[in-house]
Design a binder for these strands. Structure first.
Length: 539
RNA sequence: GCGGGUGUAGCUCAGUGGUAGAGCGUCACGUUGCCAACGUGAAUGUCGUCGGUUCAAGUCCGAUCACCCGCUCCA
Protein backbone atom coordinates (compact mmCIF):
# COMPACT_ATOMS: atom_id res chain seq x y z
CA UNK A 1 0.00 0.00 0.00
CA UNK A 2 1.64 3.24 -1.09
CA UNK A 3 1.83 5.95 1.54
CA UNK A 4 0.66 9.49 0.93
CA UNK A 5 4.28 10.58 0.58
CA UNK A 6 4.82 7.88 -2.05
CA UNK A 7 1.83 9.13 -4.01
CA UNK A 8 3.16 12.67 -3.90
CA UNK A 9 6.56 11.45 -5.10
CA UNK A 10 4.96 9.60 -7.98
CA UNK A 11 3.00 12.69 -8.97
CA UNK A 12 6.14 14.83 -8.82
CA UNK A 13 8.03 12.25 -10.89
CA UNK A 14 5.31 12.07 -13.53
CA UNK A 15 5.07 15.86 -13.72
CA UNK A 16 8.79 16.07 -14.31
CA UNK A 17 9.03 13.09 -16.68
CA UNK A 18 6.21 14.26 -18.90
CA UNK A 19 7.00 17.96 -18.82
CA UNK A 20 4.28 19.37 -16.60
CA UNK A 21 6.52 21.04 -14.02
CA UNK A 22 10.28 21.56 -13.69
CA UNK A 23 12.33 23.14 -10.94
CA UNK A 24 13.45 26.63 -11.90
CA UNK A 25 17.01 27.06 -13.27
CA UNK A 26 17.86 23.42 -12.67
CA UNK A 27 21.15 23.43 -14.59
CA UNK A 28 22.54 25.73 -11.91
CA UNK A 29 21.31 23.53 -9.11
CA UNK A 30 17.87 25.06 -8.94
CA UNK A 31 16.47 27.68 -6.62
CA UNK A 32 14.06 27.00 -3.81
CA UNK A 33 10.48 28.16 -4.11
CA UNK A 34 10.47 28.81 -7.85
CA UNK A 35 9.03 26.54 -10.53
CA UNK A 36 8.71 26.38 -14.31
CA UNK A 37 5.83 24.85 -16.23
CA UNK A 38 6.83 22.64 -19.16
CA UNK A 39 4.86 22.15 -22.37
CA UNK A 40 2.03 20.10 -20.86
CA UNK A 41 1.89 22.08 -17.63
CA UNK A 42 1.70 25.35 -19.53
CA UNK A 43 -1.31 24.14 -21.52
CA UNK A 44 -2.97 22.83 -18.37
CA UNK A 45 -2.45 26.06 -16.44
CA UNK A 46 -3.65 28.13 -19.39
CA UNK A 47 -6.79 26.00 -19.62
CA UNK A 48 -7.47 26.52 -15.91
CA UNK A 49 -7.01 30.28 -16.17
CA UNK A 50 -9.16 30.43 -19.32
CA UNK A 51 -11.89 28.43 -17.60
CA UNK A 52 -11.79 30.81 -14.64
CA UNK A 53 -11.82 33.92 -16.78
CA UNK A 54 -14.70 32.63 -18.86
CA UNK A 55 -16.77 31.36 -15.94
CA UNK A 56 -16.19 34.35 -13.65
CA UNK A 57 -15.64 37.34 -15.94
CA UNK A 58 -16.96 36.83 -19.45
CA UNK A 59 -19.96 34.67 -18.69
CA UNK A 60 -20.74 34.44 -14.97
CA UNK A 61 -24.07 32.92 -13.91
CA UNK A 62 -26.84 35.23 -12.64
CA UNK A 63 -26.53 36.47 -9.08
CA UNK A 64 -28.83 35.72 -6.14
CA UNK A 65 -32.52 36.02 -7.17
CA UNK A 66 -31.42 36.28 -10.79
CA UNK A 67 -29.74 39.67 -10.30
CA UNK A 68 -27.57 40.62 -13.28
CA UNK A 69 -24.17 42.06 -12.46
CA UNK A 70 -21.15 43.19 -14.39
CA UNK A 71 -17.64 41.75 -14.31
CA UNK A 72 -14.63 43.48 -15.84
CA UNK A 73 -10.93 42.70 -15.86
CA UNK A 74 -7.73 44.59 -15.14
CA UNK A 75 -4.07 43.68 -15.50
CA UNK A 76 -2.07 45.77 -13.06
CA UNK A 77 1.65 46.32 -12.70
CA UNK A 78 3.56 44.15 -10.27
CA UNK A 79 5.52 47.08 -8.87
CA UNK A 80 3.44 49.93 -7.50
CA UNK A 81 3.98 53.06 -5.50
CA UNK A 82 5.27 51.84 -2.10
CA UNK A 83 2.55 53.85 -0.38
CA UNK A 84 0.08 51.24 -1.64
CA UNK A 85 1.73 48.74 0.69
CA UNK A 86 1.85 51.17 3.58
CA UNK A 87 -1.90 51.70 3.22
CA UNK A 88 -2.61 47.98 2.91
CA UNK A 89 -0.62 47.26 6.04
CA UNK A 90 1.94 45.09 4.29
CA UNK A 91 4.94 47.31 4.97
CA UNK A 92 4.11 47.75 8.64
CA UNK A 93 2.46 44.46 9.37
CA UNK A 94 3.47 41.93 6.78
CA UNK A 95 6.52 40.82 8.69
CA UNK A 96 7.05 37.68 10.62
CA UNK A 97 9.56 38.30 13.36
CA UNK A 98 10.83 34.94 14.53
CA UNK A 99 12.66 33.82 17.64
CA UNK A 100 14.43 30.52 18.04
CA UNK A 101 15.92 28.65 20.96
CA UNK A 102 19.73 28.50 21.09
CA UNK A 103 19.74 25.19 23.00
CA UNK A 104 21.29 22.50 20.75
CA UNK A 105 18.73 19.85 21.51
CA UNK A 106 15.74 22.20 21.29
CA UNK A 107 16.22 24.77 18.50
CA UNK A 108 12.49 25.36 18.45
CA UNK A 109 11.27 28.24 16.29
CA UNK A 110 8.59 30.65 17.48
CA UNK A 111 6.69 33.53 15.97
CA UNK A 112 7.81 36.46 18.09
CA UNK A 113 4.34 37.98 18.17
CA UNK A 114 2.96 34.75 19.59
CA UNK A 115 5.54 34.56 22.36
CA UNK A 116 4.97 36.36 25.66
CA UNK A 117 6.88 36.83 28.85
CA UNK A 118 4.88 37.22 32.04
CA UNK A 119 6.53 38.97 34.96
CA UNK A 120 4.95 38.86 38.42
CA UNK A 121 5.64 41.96 40.50
CA UNK A 122 4.99 42.11 44.17
CA UNK A 123 2.34 44.68 44.83
CA UNK A 124 4.34 45.85 47.84
CA UNK A 125 7.35 46.61 45.60
CA UNK A 126 5.46 48.78 43.19
CA UNK A 127 2.73 50.45 45.14
CA UNK A 128 3.90 53.88 44.17
CA UNK A 129 4.50 52.83 40.56
CA UNK A 130 1.39 50.73 40.07
CA UNK A 131 -0.32 53.05 37.60
CA UNK A 132 2.83 53.11 35.52
CA UNK A 133 3.03 49.33 35.34
CA UNK A 134 -0.63 49.01 34.53
CA UNK A 135 -0.37 51.50 31.77
CA UNK A 136 2.77 49.88 30.38
CA UNK A 137 1.01 46.53 30.34
CA UNK A 138 -1.71 48.03 28.23
CA UNK A 139 0.50 49.64 25.66
CA UNK A 140 3.27 47.08 25.66
CA UNK A 141 1.57 45.24 22.87
CA UNK A 142 0.90 48.38 20.87
CA UNK A 143 3.75 50.83 21.09
CA UNK A 144 7.20 49.69 22.02
CA UNK A 145 8.88 53.01 22.63
CA UNK A 146 6.15 54.44 24.78
CA UNK A 147 5.89 51.39 27.00
CA UNK A 148 9.64 51.14 27.21
CA UNK A 149 9.92 54.68 28.44
CA UNK A 150 7.32 54.02 31.08
CA UNK A 151 8.97 50.86 32.36
CA UNK A 152 12.37 52.52 32.38
CA UNK A 153 11.01 55.26 34.57
CA UNK A 154 10.47 52.72 37.35
CA UNK A 155 13.02 52.55 40.19
CA UNK A 156 15.68 49.87 39.84
CA UNK A 157 14.20 47.63 42.45
CA UNK A 158 11.20 46.99 40.29
CA UNK A 159 12.28 43.74 38.71
CA UNK A 160 9.61 41.06 38.54
CA UNK A 161 10.05 38.42 41.23
CA UNK A 162 9.07 35.63 38.88
CA UNK A 163 9.09 35.37 35.11
CA UNK A 164 7.76 32.87 32.64
CA UNK A 165 7.80 32.68 28.82
CA UNK A 166 4.93 31.08 26.96
CA UNK A 167 3.13 30.88 23.62
CA UNK A 168 -0.23 32.59 23.30
CA UNK A 169 -2.36 34.53 20.84
CA UNK A 170 -3.03 37.59 22.98
CA UNK A 171 -1.57 39.08 26.16
CA UNK A 172 -4.82 38.33 28.00
CA UNK A 173 -4.56 34.74 26.85
CA UNK A 174 -0.96 34.59 28.05
CA UNK A 175 -1.78 35.96 31.49
CA UNK A 176 -4.68 33.57 31.88
CA UNK A 177 -2.39 30.64 31.10
CA UNK A 178 -0.39 31.15 34.30
CA UNK A 179 -2.72 31.96 37.18
CA UNK A 180 -0.67 32.91 40.21
CA UNK A 181 -2.22 30.03 42.13
CA UNK A 182 -0.67 27.56 39.74
CA UNK A 183 2.88 28.63 40.57
CA UNK A 184 4.94 26.49 42.88
CA UNK A 185 4.86 27.08 46.61
CA UNK A 186 8.45 28.26 46.72
CA UNK A 187 7.75 30.87 44.07
CA UNK A 188 4.62 32.11 45.77
CA UNK A 189 6.47 32.43 49.08
CA UNK A 190 8.67 35.15 47.58
CA UNK A 191 5.66 37.45 47.42
CA UNK A 192 4.71 39.44 50.48
CA UNK A 193 1.90 41.47 48.97
CA UNK A 194 -0.46 40.74 46.10
CA UNK A 195 1.04 39.42 42.84
CA UNK A 196 0.70 41.74 39.86
CA UNK A 197 1.32 40.28 36.40
CA UNK A 198 2.85 42.28 33.55
CA UNK A 199 2.89 40.84 30.06
CA UNK A 200 5.41 41.60 27.31
CA UNK A 201 5.21 40.46 23.70
CA UNK A 202 8.60 39.30 22.50
CA UNK A 203 8.58 40.88 19.04
CA UNK A 204 10.03 43.97 20.72
CA UNK A 205 12.99 44.40 23.06
CA UNK A 206 12.38 43.69 26.72
CA UNK A 207 12.52 46.44 29.33
CA UNK A 208 16.20 46.80 30.25
CA UNK A 209 15.62 45.89 33.86
CA UNK A 210 14.11 42.50 32.98
CA UNK A 211 16.19 39.35 32.74
CA UNK A 212 16.25 37.71 29.28
CA UNK A 213 13.35 35.52 28.26
CA UNK A 214 13.89 31.77 28.24
CA UNK A 215 12.60 29.15 25.86
CA UNK A 216 9.10 28.03 26.93
CA UNK A 217 9.90 24.45 25.92
CA UNK A 218 13.36 23.80 27.34
CA UNK A 219 14.23 26.94 29.30
CA UNK A 220 17.21 27.63 27.03
CA UNK A 221 18.47 30.97 25.82
CA UNK A 222 16.48 32.62 23.02
CA UNK A 223 17.75 34.56 20.02
CA UNK A 224 16.72 38.11 19.26
CA UNK A 225 13.53 38.55 17.27
CA UNK A 226 14.49 38.73 13.61
CA UNK A 227 12.08 40.24 11.15
CA UNK A 228 11.43 38.38 7.95
CA UNK A 229 9.76 40.84 5.61
CA UNK A 230 7.86 38.63 3.24
CA UNK A 231 7.88 41.24 0.48
CA UNK A 232 10.64 41.12 -2.13
CA UNK A 233 12.38 44.46 -2.39
CA UNK A 234 14.07 46.03 -5.36
CA UNK A 235 14.86 49.50 -6.64
CA UNK A 236 13.22 51.57 -9.35
CA UNK A 237 15.58 53.91 -11.16
CA UNK A 238 19.32 54.37 -11.09
CA UNK A 239 19.73 55.23 -7.42
CA UNK A 240 19.86 52.22 -5.14
CA UNK A 241 18.96 53.99 -1.93
CA UNK A 242 15.98 53.96 0.38
CA UNK A 243 14.21 56.62 -1.65
CA UNK A 244 14.04 54.30 -4.65
CA UNK A 245 13.00 51.19 -2.76
CA UNK A 246 9.98 49.40 -4.24
CA UNK A 247 8.30 46.06 -3.63
CA UNK A 248 7.12 43.19 -5.77
CA UNK A 249 3.42 42.90 -4.96
CA UNK A 250 2.61 40.23 -2.37
CA UNK A 251 -0.99 40.05 -3.64
CA UNK A 252 -2.90 41.20 -6.68
CA UNK A 253 -5.80 42.69 -4.71
CA UNK A 254 -4.35 46.15 -4.10
CA UNK A 255 -3.97 46.85 -7.80
CA UNK A 256 -7.71 46.41 -8.11
CA UNK A 257 -8.53 48.62 -5.12
CA UNK A 258 -6.39 51.53 -6.28
CA UNK A 259 -7.95 51.28 -9.76
CA UNK A 260 -11.50 51.21 -8.41
CA UNK A 261 -12.20 54.88 -9.27
CA UNK A 262 -10.60 54.49 -12.74
CA UNK A 263 -12.84 51.56 -13.59
CA UNK A 264 -15.97 53.24 -12.24
CA UNK A 265 -15.30 56.43 -14.24
CA UNK A 266 -14.42 54.76 -17.53
CA UNK A 267 -16.41 51.52 -17.78
CA UNK A 268 -20.07 52.46 -17.25
CA UNK A 269 -20.24 49.88 -14.48
CA UNK A 270 -22.87 50.13 -11.75
CA UNK A 271 -22.82 48.49 -8.37
CA UNK A 272 -22.93 45.64 -7.74
CA UNK A 273 -20.02 44.71 -10.00
CA UNK A 274 -16.71 42.91 -9.84
CA UNK A 275 -13.16 43.57 -11.03
CA UNK A 276 -11.07 40.50 -11.80
CA UNK A 277 -7.37 40.01 -12.24
CA UNK A 278 -5.01 37.13 -12.91
CA UNK A 279 -1.39 37.83 -12.17
CA UNK A 280 1.87 37.01 -10.48
CA UNK A 281 2.52 37.80 -6.83
CA UNK A 282 5.64 37.30 -4.76
CA UNK A 283 6.31 36.38 -1.16
CA UNK A 284 9.73 35.69 0.22
CA UNK A 285 8.64 32.63 2.18
CA UNK A 286 11.04 31.55 4.89
CA UNK A 287 10.65 27.98 3.88
CA UNK A 288 8.87 27.08 0.64
CA UNK A 289 7.56 23.52 0.77
CA UNK A 290 5.20 20.94 -0.61
CA UNK A 291 6.18 21.08 -4.27
CA UNK A 292 4.58 24.06 -6.01
CA UNK A 293 2.07 24.58 -3.21
CA UNK A 294 3.97 27.22 -1.30
CA UNK A 295 6.15 29.06 -3.80
CA UNK A 296 7.90 32.39 -3.58
CA UNK A 297 6.55 33.40 -6.97
CA UNK A 298 2.97 32.42 -7.67
CA UNK A 299 -0.06 33.40 -9.66
CA UNK A 300 -3.37 34.49 -8.23
CA UNK A 301 -6.83 34.73 -9.71
CA UNK A 302 -8.75 37.23 -7.78
CA UNK A 303 -12.07 39.09 -7.83
CA UNK A 304 -12.95 42.15 -5.82
CA UNK A 305 -16.73 42.35 -5.93
CA UNK A 306 -18.13 45.74 -4.89
CA UNK A 307 -21.61 46.03 -3.41
CA UNK A 308 -23.78 47.98 -0.99
CA UNK A 309 -22.94 47.16 2.65
CA UNK A 310 -26.46 45.90 3.28
CA UNK A 311 -26.06 43.29 0.53
CA UNK A 312 -22.56 42.14 1.41
CA UNK A 313 -23.65 39.08 3.35
CA UNK A 314 -25.83 37.93 0.44
CA UNK A 315 -23.03 38.35 -2.12
CA UNK A 316 -20.53 36.70 0.18
CA UNK A 317 -22.64 33.55 0.29
CA UNK A 318 -23.20 33.70 -3.45
CA UNK A 319 -19.50 33.85 -4.27
CA UNK A 320 -18.50 31.31 -1.66
CA UNK A 321 -20.88 28.73 -3.06
CA UNK A 322 -20.18 29.61 -6.68
CA UNK A 323 -16.44 29.30 -6.27
CA UNK A 324 -16.74 25.97 -4.49
CA UNK A 325 -19.01 24.67 -7.24
CA UNK A 326 -16.52 25.76 -9.91
CA UNK A 327 -13.87 23.38 -8.57
CA UNK A 328 -16.39 20.56 -8.34
CA UNK A 329 -17.59 21.12 -11.90
CA UNK A 330 -14.02 20.99 -13.21
CA UNK A 331 -13.35 17.63 -11.69
CA UNK A 332 -12.52 17.98 -7.98
CA UNK A 333 -15.44 15.72 -7.19
CA UNK A 334 -13.92 13.60 -4.50
CA UNK A 335 -14.41 14.19 -0.81
CA UNK A 336 -10.91 15.66 -0.83
CA UNK A 337 -12.45 19.03 -1.68
CA UNK A 338 -13.96 20.95 1.23
CA UNK A 339 -15.56 24.28 1.87
CA UNK A 340 -14.81 25.48 5.37
CA UNK A 341 -16.22 28.56 7.08
CA UNK A 342 -13.79 30.33 9.37
CA UNK A 343 -14.56 30.53 13.05
CA UNK A 344 -14.97 34.03 14.44
CA UNK A 345 -11.63 33.91 16.25
CA UNK A 346 -9.89 32.83 13.05
CA UNK A 347 -10.90 35.88 11.03
CA UNK A 348 -8.33 38.39 9.90
CA UNK A 349 -8.77 41.89 11.27
CA UNK A 350 -10.14 43.13 7.94
CA UNK A 351 -12.65 40.36 7.30
CA UNK A 352 -16.20 40.11 8.55
CA UNK A 353 -16.58 36.56 7.31
CA UNK A 354 -14.34 34.18 5.44
CA UNK A 355 -14.39 30.69 4.00
CA UNK A 356 -11.67 28.51 2.53
CA UNK A 357 -11.90 26.10 -0.35
CA UNK A 358 -9.54 23.39 0.80
CA UNK A 359 -8.11 20.32 -0.90
CA UNK A 360 -6.75 17.30 0.89
CA UNK A 361 -3.35 16.89 -0.78
CA UNK A 362 -1.11 13.96 0.10
CA UNK A 363 0.75 16.43 2.32
CA UNK A 364 -2.42 17.53 4.09
CA UNK A 365 -5.54 19.66 3.88
CA UNK A 366 -4.51 22.94 2.28
CA UNK A 367 -6.16 26.10 1.05
CA UNK A 368 -6.81 26.65 -2.66
CA UNK A 369 -8.93 29.77 -2.40
CA UNK A 370 -10.26 32.11 0.26
CA UNK A 371 -13.57 33.93 -0.05
CA UNK A 372 -13.80 36.87 2.34
CA UNK A 373 -16.13 39.73 3.12
CA UNK A 374 -13.44 42.40 3.47
CA UNK A 375 -16.00 45.10 4.30
CA UNK A 376 -14.84 48.61 3.35
CA UNK A 377 -11.47 48.05 5.02
CA UNK A 378 -9.28 48.32 1.92
CA UNK A 379 -11.01 51.22 0.20
CA UNK A 380 -11.11 53.16 3.48
CA UNK A 381 -7.41 52.51 4.07
CA UNK A 382 -6.61 53.96 0.63
CA UNK A 383 -8.96 56.90 1.19
CA UNK A 384 -7.10 57.73 4.36
CA UNK A 385 -3.60 57.24 2.96
CA UNK A 386 -4.10 58.90 -0.43
CA UNK A 387 -6.58 61.59 0.57
CA UNK A 388 -8.59 60.72 -2.55
CA UNK A 389 -12.31 60.09 -2.46
CA UNK A 390 -12.97 56.47 -3.40
CA UNK A 391 -16.62 56.49 -2.41
CA UNK A 392 -19.39 55.69 -4.89
CA UNK A 393 -22.62 57.52 -5.68
CA UNK A 394 -25.44 55.08 -6.14
CA UNK A 395 -28.01 56.51 -8.58
CA UNK A 396 -30.64 53.94 -7.65
CA UNK A 397 -30.37 54.49 -3.94
CA UNK A 398 -29.53 58.21 -4.22
CA UNK A 399 -26.82 57.52 -1.69
CA UNK A 400 -23.04 58.01 -1.49
CA UNK A 401 -21.10 55.30 0.29
CA UNK A 402 -17.86 53.32 0.40
CA UNK A 403 -18.75 49.90 -1.05
CA UNK A 404 -18.21 46.64 0.78
CA UNK A 405 -15.99 44.13 -0.97
CA UNK A 406 -16.37 40.39 -1.38
CA UNK A 407 -13.05 38.85 -2.35
CA UNK A 408 -12.72 35.38 -3.86
CA UNK A 409 -8.94 35.00 -4.07
CA UNK A 410 -7.36 31.80 -5.33
CA UNK A 411 -3.91 30.47 -6.10
CA UNK A 412 -3.64 29.39 -9.73
CA UNK A 413 -0.62 27.18 -9.11
CA UNK A 414 -2.37 25.59 -6.16
CA UNK A 415 -5.35 24.81 -8.36
CA UNK A 416 -3.05 23.34 -10.99
CA UNK A 417 -1.56 21.09 -8.34
CA UNK A 418 -4.99 20.12 -7.02
CA UNK A 419 -6.25 19.25 -10.51
CA UNK A 420 -3.09 17.25 -11.16
CA UNK A 421 -3.41 15.44 -7.84
CA UNK A 422 -7.08 14.66 -8.41
CA UNK A 423 -6.43 13.50 -11.98
CA UNK A 424 -3.57 11.22 -11.03
CA UNK A 425 -4.91 7.67 -11.12
CA UNK A 426 -3.15 4.40 -10.48
CA UNK A 427 -4.54 1.15 -11.84
CA UNK A 428 -2.13 -1.76 -11.74
CA UNK A 429 -4.44 -3.82 -13.94
CA UNK A 430 -3.90 -1.55 -16.90
CA UNK A 431 -1.06 -1.82 -19.34
CA UNK A 432 -0.40 1.81 -18.50
CA UNK A 433 -0.73 1.77 -14.71
CA UNK A 434 -0.74 5.55 -14.33
CA UNK A 435 -3.04 7.96 -16.11
CA UNK A 436 -4.22 11.52 -15.70
CA UNK A 437 -7.99 11.75 -15.52
CA UNK A 438 -8.28 15.42 -16.40
CA UNK A 439 -11.62 17.07 -17.06
CA UNK A 440 -11.81 17.44 -20.88
CA UNK A 441 -11.84 21.23 -20.55
CA UNK A 442 -8.52 21.12 -18.73
CA UNK A 443 -6.71 18.36 -20.63
CA UNK A 444 -3.56 19.81 -22.25
CA UNK A 445 -3.99 17.62 -25.33
CA UNK A 446 -7.55 16.78 -26.35
CA UNK A 447 -6.87 14.08 -28.92
CA UNK A 448 -4.18 12.04 -30.67
CA UNK A 449 -4.11 10.35 -34.07
CA UNK A 450 -2.13 7.16 -34.71
CA UNK A 451 -1.65 4.88 -37.68
CA UNK A 452 -1.77 1.40 -36.15
CA UNK A 453 1.51 0.59 -37.92
CA UNK A 454 3.81 2.86 -39.89
CA UNK A 455 3.35 1.11 -43.26
CA UNK A 456 0.83 -0.04 -45.84
CA UNK A 457 -0.35 3.52 -46.42
CA UNK A 458 -1.83 3.94 -42.93
CA UNK A 459 0.23 7.08 -42.12
CA UNK A 460 -0.98 8.61 -45.38
CA UNK A 461 -4.57 8.17 -44.21
CA UNK A 462 -3.94 9.27 -40.60
CA UNK A 463 -2.06 12.49 -41.32
CA UNK A 464 -4.95 14.36 -42.98
CA UNK A 465 -7.23 13.29 -40.10
CA UNK A 466 -4.70 14.79 -37.67
CA UNK A 467 -4.41 18.02 -39.65
CA UNK A 468 -8.18 18.45 -39.64
CA UNK A 469 -8.58 17.87 -35.88
CA UNK A 470 -5.64 20.17 -35.11
CA UNK A 471 -7.57 23.09 -36.59
CA UNK A 472 -10.14 22.75 -33.82
CA UNK A 473 -8.50 21.34 -30.69
CA UNK A 474 -4.94 20.64 -29.48
CA UNK A 475 -4.04 17.31 -31.08
CA UNK A 476 -0.91 15.21 -31.54
CA UNK A 477 0.21 12.76 -34.21
CA UNK A 478 2.49 9.81 -33.47
CA UNK A 479 3.47 6.98 -35.82
CA UNK A 480 6.50 5.45 -34.19
CA UNK A 481 6.76 2.63 -31.63
CA UNK A 482 4.12 0.16 -30.60
CA UNK A 483 0.50 1.20 -30.36
CA UNK A 484 0.45 0.29 -26.65
CA UNK A 485 3.29 2.60 -25.84
CA UNK A 486 1.64 5.44 -27.72
CA UNK A 487 -1.59 4.92 -25.79
CA UNK A 488 0.32 4.82 -22.51
CA UNK A 489 2.06 8.10 -23.27
CA UNK A 490 -1.24 9.78 -23.99
CA UNK A 491 -2.66 8.36 -20.76
CA UNK A 492 0.12 10.06 -18.81
CA UNK A 493 -0.58 13.33 -20.57
CA UNK A 494 -4.28 12.93 -19.81
CA UNK A 495 -5.41 12.97 -23.44
CA UNK A 496 -9.08 11.92 -23.41
CA UNK A 497 -9.29 10.34 -26.89
CA UNK A 498 -6.98 8.55 -29.34
CA UNK A 499 -7.99 7.93 -32.97
CA UNK A 500 -6.31 4.94 -34.60
CA UNK A 501 -6.25 4.29 -38.33
CA UNK A 502 -6.02 0.55 -39.10
CA UNK A 503 -6.41 -1.83 -42.04
CA UNK A 504 -10.17 -1.58 -41.98
CA UNK A 505 -9.95 2.18 -42.53
CA UNK A 506 -8.74 1.46 -46.05
CA UNK A 507 -11.90 -0.52 -46.73
CA UNK A 508 -14.71 1.48 -45.08
CA UNK A 509 -13.19 4.82 -43.92
CA UNK A 510 -13.83 4.07 -40.24
CA UNK A 511 -11.26 4.34 -37.48
CA UNK A 512 -11.24 3.45 -33.79
CA UNK A 513 -11.67 5.89 -30.90
CA UNK A 514 -10.10 4.83 -27.65
CA UNK A 515 -11.31 6.24 -24.33
CA UNK A 516 -8.59 7.23 -21.89
CA UNK A 517 -10.38 6.14 -18.75
CA UNK A 518 -11.57 2.64 -19.61
CA UNK A 519 -9.50 1.88 -22.74
CA UNK A 520 -12.70 0.96 -24.57
CA UNK A 521 -12.88 1.37 -28.33
CA UNK A 522 -15.61 2.14 -30.81
CA UNK A 523 -15.48 2.67 -34.58
CA UNK A 524 -16.61 5.89 -36.19
CA UNK A 525 -16.32 7.32 -39.68
CA UNK A 526 -13.01 9.14 -40.07
CA UNK A 527 -14.85 12.27 -41.25
CA UNK A 528 -16.71 12.49 -37.94
CA UNK A 529 -13.69 12.93 -35.60
CA UNK A 530 -14.14 16.64 -34.95
CA UNK A 531 -17.86 16.25 -34.45
CA UNK A 532 -17.26 13.37 -32.05
CA UNK A 533 -14.78 15.45 -30.03
CA UNK A 534 -17.11 18.47 -29.88
CA UNK A 535 -19.79 16.19 -28.57
CA UNK A 536 -17.76 14.33 -26.00
CA UNK A 537 -15.57 17.18 -24.79
CA UNK A 538 -18.49 19.53 -24.30
CA UNK A 539 -16.60 22.28 -26.11
C1' G B 1 17.31 30.36 10.72
C1' C B 2 18.17 25.31 13.17
C1' G B 3 18.34 19.92 12.83
C1' G B 4 18.30 15.51 9.63
C1' G B 5 18.88 13.46 4.61
C1' U B 6 20.55 13.45 -0.54
C1' G B 7 23.84 14.95 -4.82
C1' U B 8 27.11 9.34 -10.34
C1' A B 9 23.71 9.26 -17.92
C1' G B 10 17.12 12.30 -19.33
C1' C B 11 14.92 8.93 -15.02
C1' U B 12 15.76 4.96 -11.07
C1' C B 13 20.08 3.49 -9.04
C1' A B 14 24.81 0.09 -8.55
C1' G B 15 29.81 1.09 -7.94
C1' U B 16 34.25 0.77 -0.10
C1' G B 17 41.30 3.51 -3.24
C1' G B 18 43.30 0.98 -9.29
C1' U B 19 39.80 1.19 -17.19
C1' A B 20 32.74 5.09 -15.62
C1' G B 21 28.39 0.83 -15.07
C1' A B 22 23.10 -1.49 -15.37
C1' G B 23 17.83 -1.13 -16.24
C1' C B 24 14.33 2.11 -18.20
C1' G B 25 13.99 6.24 -21.52
C1' U B 26 15.82 8.82 -26.19
C1' C B 27 17.50 8.43 -31.52
C1' A B 28 18.32 5.39 -36.26
C1' C B 29 17.26 1.02 -39.16
C1' G B 30 14.58 -3.43 -39.46
C1' U B 31 10.45 -5.93 -37.67
C1' U B 32 5.49 -5.02 -35.85
C1' G B 33 -1.73 -5.48 -37.08
C1' C B 34 -4.82 -2.63 -30.70
C1' C B 35 -2.67 -1.47 -25.10
C1' A B 36 4.73 0.53 -21.99
C1' A B 37 6.46 -6.17 -27.93
C1' C B 38 11.33 -7.70 -30.38
C1' G B 39 16.30 -7.41 -32.88
C1' U B 40 20.64 -4.57 -34.27
C1' G B 41 23.16 -0.17 -33.71
C1' A B 42 23.98 4.89 -31.62
C1' A B 43 24.18 9.23 -28.55
C1' U B 44 24.48 10.83 -23.50
C1' G B 45 28.81 11.93 -17.62
C1' U B 46 34.23 17.68 -15.36
C1' C B 47 30.67 11.28 -10.45
C1' G B 48 27.17 18.94 -7.36
C1' U B 49 31.57 22.52 -6.67
C1' C B 50 36.38 23.86 -4.55
C1' G B 51 40.48 22.27 -1.88
C1' G B 52 43.39 18.40 0.81
C1' U B 53 45.57 13.23 1.68
C1' U B 54 47.64 9.48 -1.85
C1' C B 55 51.83 6.78 -6.92
C1' A B 56 46.45 6.74 -7.76
C1' A B 57 40.05 9.66 -5.29
C1' G B 58 33.25 8.62 -7.67
C1' U B 59 35.27 6.12 -3.21
C1' C B 60 39.01 8.95 2.41
C1' C B 61 39.23 14.17 4.84
C1' G B 62 37.73 19.49 4.95
C1' A B 63 34.89 23.35 3.11
C1' U B 64 31.06 25.08 0.09
C1' C B 65 26.58 25.10 -2.95
C1' A B 66 21.91 23.18 -4.17
C1' C B 67 17.72 20.32 -3.34
C1' C B 68 14.45 17.20 -0.09
C1' C B 69 12.12 16.26 4.98
C1' G B 70 10.78 18.48 9.94
C1' C B 71 9.84 23.19 13.22
C1' U B 72 6.90 28.31 11.41
C1' C B 73 3.68 30.92 8.07
C1' C B 74 0.35 31.52 3.88
C1' A B 75 -2.94 32.41 -1.98
Amino acid sequence: MPTQADVMEKIVALCRRRGFIFGSSEIYGGIGGFWDYGPLGTELKRNIKDAWWNDCVRNPPPGPNGIEYQMVGVDCSIIMNPKVWEASGHVGGFKDPMISCRQERCKKLFRADKLFIIGFYDQADIDDAEPVIEEAQGIATRDRQEANTLIQSLPHSHIPRFMKTLEADTPEDAVSQVPFDSLSHSVRRQFRGNPCPACWRLDRPLPPSWPPARCPICGGELTEARAFNLMFETHAGALQDSSSKVYLRPETAQGIFVNFPNVVKTSRVRLPFGIAQIGKAFRNEINPRNYTFRSREFEQYEIEFFCHPSEAAMWYEYWRDLRHKWYVDLGLRSDKLRLRDHEANELAHYAESCADVEYDFPFGLSELEGIANRTDFDLKAHIEKSGKDLSYFDDQRKERYVPYVIEPSGGVDRSVLAFITEAYTMDEDRASPEFMNFHPRLAPIKAAVFPLVAKDGLPEIAEPVYREIKKHVPCQYEAKQSIGKRYARMDEAGTPFCFTVDGQTKEDDTLTVRDRNDASQIRIDKSRCVEYLRDRLGL
